[in-house]
Design a protein around this nucleic acid. Structure first.
Length: 813
DNA sequence: TCACTGCATGGCT
DNA sequence: AAGCCATGCAGTG
């Protein structure tokens, strides 16, 4: 309410008033200002839902004798409860209802096509609108003719840019520059404006017709109202025709509109995740030529849905809106046809639940299996018009690339095995280091509304949902991670080379993640490193041996007090910086790294300033990484015949054999030999009596970015020599040829592992590990990328950073 | 013991 | 805070 003098938005009224009330929301986002009477009428739902040909603007229902349109009531008057409505509809009328159907979702298209769709050219519902008839009758053309050229042009461009959306009578559309209004629509339910995009046909005519809107004319008219007004207005998808009433285009009249409007309400109430996202092809698949089909809703199959129980939990509102009303818990059999035309009979029933109902479709398992759907896939329900037959379709969830495409799918350290529906879904839902995957996942996230629960990730563990930022961090490659690993302050790592691999050992401590720096030579010939301030991004010179924390800023510059503030001038010139970078790129390893990076390959200086930036670059790398130059494991050359590469992604099959001399096994084996020797030595020392137990525990840490997965490996001891047990995952020290190293370990999926918990360190204590654990660990090979930095830690003794082990590149094998 | 059924629980929106 | 719904589980055959 305001005291500003304004003319009532209702052109029929045009009353000036100091007091005005808020009416419907306009395209501009503002609200129509109404005088008191009009506002009251609006609030009472007395505005007719349509525009009239002979009068502009909204009309009070009293003026045209129309009753309030329940399909588009003002927000405050929305919706009596659906069950009550349905109670009035006997089962006998079901077919009739089905035939008349819900007013198809597109009658209020904007309510079904959310912003994500508009924002995305890949419209999930590329409906075409055939309004060849009735337009004139209902004054559309009249309004079209009133369209302002500027608006038309602007909108046309906009729509064309958005992807050949057309909406308008063909005769107009064919001219290419005039059409029917395609505009944001007032959605009273959501108080949201959502453009409606429609496409006329599948022809190459790309023109987009857009009608204009003058203030009191079409400006805020819902297209749905236009559609609902015209019995002959229909939506076509390919050859299929969608009618507003679900019947109109199929020969029946508008008489059912009143009924179906209730369905619109239901539909409007549907949560976004149930709104049909059906594609044109799917529609083509579902129905034959020239059939009317009404997408009803869809649902992503939960584990329960896809489980053996064979019960599909139906969204309540969907069930009540689109399925026959049932009053008995036992429900009734429902005939459903799948996309292949096969008939199925499900039991549609409900059970009481918290003063409500829970609707289920029973006996869906055969159908689900027939459609080869799994948890995470989507089942769609549509209705064939006019007979009202329910059509059940399916849509597979996004495909997670397999490892042999060189793409890494990491959920924490949980990597799904192909073929595992749940796992697949988990992957799709959560993580992907590869740009392709991410793109697909994001796409899917747009298309398939995010799940409310983490069930698809893992029923019991709620811990693996990783935010995007975390995903970025995980995109650090093993080499990048390696380059950031530093010895802790005051710790001088001892180095040793085993089988060509350089090992750095940090006694009694673990390495820290440092800030990326550029090494160079000072004027005096002294080796220095350049580090970039996290705040001002200026490069500062620090000693070569300086340990630079990841959040280093100028104020931390204890080596050059003159440059210990961000305000100080930068010493490093651009030219010098370029030289440094160039030199870095000349370095074989750096060069290789850079060549692996994105095609643009330019090392972004700023991109080095944080781990996250590195991660971003890693993402770019992921984008270009393809199966052609990557084997299953980044550190293995193409054609590598080691067990890791030979092993199927599912983890089934043999593990590293005792004699495996792959790049992973060899240094590990050597290192363990060393470790065990040391262990034995310590145990023989008198002071180590406390370590005289017969079981020693070794921890194997696999660092993933900032996360470390730690597996404790128990080494059973026998007199005279170390003895290593056979189970996979245990490592032999006494007999390298005998012992096995399972590089397929992964943290316990079900309960224990949290990639972020406790800095990602999860300890698995061997005594508590059952065979089941190890069996579970076989599900995936441990990617070198995931290994990143493989730490072999002898409990209480120290930490060995097998630097170089995983840095074995694919060339060197 | 297993499969099925119906309900209860609790996380999530 | 209410309602939805995924899933667990007890009861039953």
């Amino acid at each position: 309410m305001s005291a500003t003098m304004e003319v009532c938005f209702n052109s029929n009224c045009n009353q000036s008033s100091e007091k005005w009330k808020r009416g419907w929301r306009r395209r501009t986002g503002e609200y129509a200002h109404l005088c008191d009477p009009c506002a009251s009428a609006y609030e009472d739902g007395k505005f007719c839902e349509t525009f009239h040909t002979n009068a502009s603007g909204w009309r009070c229902c009293e003026s045209c004798g129309k009753t309030p349109n329940p399909a588009w009531p003002p927000p405050f008057h929305f919706l009596p409860s659906q069950p009550e409505r349905m109670k009035d509809i006997s089962m006998k009328t079901w077919s009739g209802i089905a035939a008349s159907g819900p007013v198809p979702w597109h009658q209020a298209p904007s309510l079904f096509n959310g912003p994500s769709i508009q924002a995305n050219d890949q419209l999930k519902m590329p409906f075409e609108v055939d309004v060849s008839d009735g337009i004139g009758r209902y004054g559309l053309s009249e309004r079209l003719s009133m369209a302002s050229p500027e608006m038309k042009q602007e909108r046309s461009c906009e729509r064309l840019a958005n992807g050949n959306m057309r909406f308008g009578p063909p005769e107009i559309l064919q001219n290419g520059n005039i059409g029917l209004k395609v505009k944001e629509q007032h959605c009273p339910l959501t108080s949201d404006f959502k453009p409606i995009y429609c496409r006329n046909d599948t022809s190459s005519n790309q023109s987009l017709g857009v009608a204009s809107s003058s203030k009191n004319e079409t400006d805020d008219a819902p297209i749905s109202s236009i559609l609902s007004q015209s019995p002959s207005v229909s939506l076509t998808v390919g050859k299929q025709v969608f009618s507003p009433s679900g019947l109109d285009s199929c020969g029946e009249g508008q008489i059912r509109n009143e009924k179906s409007r209730g369905d619109v309400r239901s539909r409007n109430q549907l949560l976004p995740r149930y709104r049909p996202q059906i594609t044109n092809e799917e529609l083509q698949k579902i129905s034959g030529d020239f059939k009317c089909i009404t997408p009803l809703f869809e649902k992503m199959l939960s584990a329960s849905d896809a489980g053996r129980i064979g019960r599909l939990v139906l969204p309540k509102k969907c069930a009540e809106a689109y399925f026959p009303s049932i009053n008995q818990a036992e429900g009734l059999p429902l005939n459903v046809q799948d996309i292949k035309g096969k008939e199925w009979v499900f039991q549609f029933r409900f059970w009481p639940n918290n003063n409500s109902r829970m609707y289920v479709l029973e006996g869906i398992t055969p159908c689900i299996q027939s459609m080869q759907l799994q948890a995470g896939d989507v089942v769609t329900f549509s209705r064939l018009e006019p007979e009202g037959k329910l059509i059940m379709g399916g849509r597979k969830a996004s495909v997670v690339p397999s490892f042999d495409q060189g793409e890494v799918n990491v959920i924490g350290s949980e990597i799904s095995s192909p073929g595992d529906a749940n796992a697949k879904n988990k992957s799709a839902d959560i993580i992907c280091l590869n740009g392709h995957v991410k793109e697909k996942v994001l796409e899917d996230k747009l298309a398939i509304p995010a799940k409310r629960k983490n069930n698809y990730i893992n029923a019991k563990s709620k811990r693996l949902r990783i935010e995007n930022e975390d995903m970025m961090e995980l995109k650090l490659t093993y080499k990048e991670a390696q380059s950031l690993i530093r010895a802790p302050a005051k710790i001088v790592p001892s180095s040793s080379i085993v089988d060509g691999c350089e090992f750095e050992e940090f006694e009694d401590c673990e390495p820290v993640i440092g800030r990326p720096t550029l090494f160079g030579i000072d004027h005096s010939g002294e080796k220095i490193q350049w580090v970039q301030c996290e705040d001002c991004l200026k490069w500062r010179k620090v000693p070569a041996n300086a340990l630079v924390p990841s959040n280093w800023t100028c104020s931390d510059n204890a080596w050059d007090l003159h440059r210990s503030a961000c305000s100080s001038a930068e010493e490093l010139t651009n030219i010098l910086l370029e030289q440094l970078l160039a030199a870095m790129n000349k370095d074989p390893r750096s060069k290789e790294e850079s060549s692996e990076r994105d095609a643009d390959a330019s090392v972004d200086v700023e991109g080095h300033n944080t781990l996250a930036n590195l991660a971003i670059q890693g993402e770019g790398k992921g984008l270009v990484a393809s199966s052609e130059n990557r084997t299953k494991h980044p550190c293995h050359i193409p054609g590598c015949t080691c067990i890791v590469c030979l092993q199927p992604p599912s983890g089934k099959g043999t593990k590293h054999g005792p004699s495996c001399d792959c790049a992973v096994c060899t240094p590990l084996r050597c290192r363990f030999r060393t470790l065990m020797e040391r262990l034995e030595k310590k145990q023989t020392e008198p002071s180590s009596s406390s370590q005289n137990s017969h079981a020693k525990e070794l921890d194997v840490d696999a660092c993933v970015g900032s996360s470390t997965v730690k597996c404790s490996l128990n080494v059973e001891e026998v007199p005279n020599s170390s003895h290593v047990e056979e189970p996979i995952g245990r490592i032999s020290s006494a007999s390298p040829l005998k012992g096995q190293i399972d590089l397929n370990i992964q943290p316990e999926r079900e309960e224990d592992f949290s990639p972020r918990s406790d800095c990602g360190v999860v300890k698995y204590s061997q005594p508590g590990l059952s065979d089941r654990f190890f069996r579970q660990q076989q599900h995936r090979p441990l990617e070198a990328d995931v290994i990143g930095n493989l730490l072999v830690k002898q409990d209480g003794v120290g930490c060995v950073n097998i630097r170089g082990c995983v840095a074995l590149d694919k060339e060197s094998g």
